[in-house]
Design a protein around this nucleic acid. Structure first.
Lengths: 165, 165
DNA sequence: CCCATTTATTTCAAGCTTAAAACTTTTTTG
DNA sequence: CAAAAAAGTTTTAAGCTTGAAATAAATGGG
């Protein structure tokens, strides 16, 4: 005979589908609330949008710049999406495109000085918003959550690899 | 004198900003990956979109229907957004709008039989996708994550209340 | 070398999303 | 009770996003 049902979960088996669904819903709700807060701040204090901030943040992280494809994969958005965002940010003078000399299909995108300066201010404000939003978690909880989300991230990657076959 | 720095975090103080930022980035990445998986499945197997699925799921959860405003708040999207989604789903025959008799400003939206049937199929598939994506978490980890995200959700609500003042 | 394939990007049409303004109906209040 | 305020929704303009098709450049096997 198998273990009684109330024990199975405690023995490291898979959670039931209902738990997984609740988990997903809660994760999504949290992400949406945080996004809404950040979007609001960006619009009110910097008159810009979350997707543009995301592009600037990605380029700030990679000082040598990124190709359009790398940027699109890093941001988890489509190619065409990045094209539009980059065009608008270029018009605003925050980023510049450099055609790669060795591969003429490819374009490299970098922050301009103006872009780096603007982003610095936004990043500082952003950090404050996030600290406020996460203020209800102590350090131990934050570490635990970080680790569990790391496990989830690995799980998602594994599922994707399996799906690709 | 205060505690040495390496102890502070362990004593239940607030995490540093860097941890919070990493936490937020990881949360967002997980949410985006799961969304991408679900969106893909919905498009391939049901020729529909994630926002439409979200509307159907909300209405399935509330059998008496929801007003436009309730729906918009439940989904965490703008009023105008819901108007468009509902219009398209109504055209597809999945939902119906009923003008409220007691408050003529208000419209109540419900699933049709066809909509409920279509959603049942989608929900079953959705459950399978989520189980696959979360397969790397055991039951204990899922419970922990659920609880930590609950704490985060409370923290977000508290920050919002404070911000509103 | 050449042509088929792959890779990097842009374009396109459709749909999603927001914030703000406008519109309608209800509620409050002077 | 009339005017003002509030509440529920839609409209609008701008921007975001996707998936698919198109374009252009590099690569690679015959």
């Amino acid at each position: 005979m198998s273990e009684p049902a109330y024990l199975i979960e405690k023995l490291g088996g898979a959670p039931d589908s209902k738990t997984n669904l609740r988990l997903w819903l809660r994760l999504l709700t949290c992400a949406h609330h945080i996004e809404a807060g950040v979007r609001d701040g960006l619009r009110r204090e910097f008159d810009t949008t979350l997707p543009r901030f995301d592009v600037l943040a990605a380029l700030d992280r990679f000082p040598d710049g990124l190709t359009m494809g790398e940027l699109s994969r890093w941001l988890l958005v489509s190619n065409g999406n990045v094209t539009g965002l980059v065009t608008r940010l270029e018009t605003e003078g925050f980023i510049e495109k450099v055609r790669s000399p060795e591969d003429r299909r490819s374009t490299r995108v970098k922050l301009t000085k103006a872009g780096a300066g603007a982003f610095a201010g936004m990043a500082k404000a952003h950090e404050g918003w996030i600290d406020q939003l996460f203020a209800g978690l102590d350090a131990e909880q934050a570490d635990q959550l970080l680790e569990l989300l790391g496990t989830l991230k690995d799980s998602l990657a594994a599922a994707k690899r399996q799906d690709a076959q």
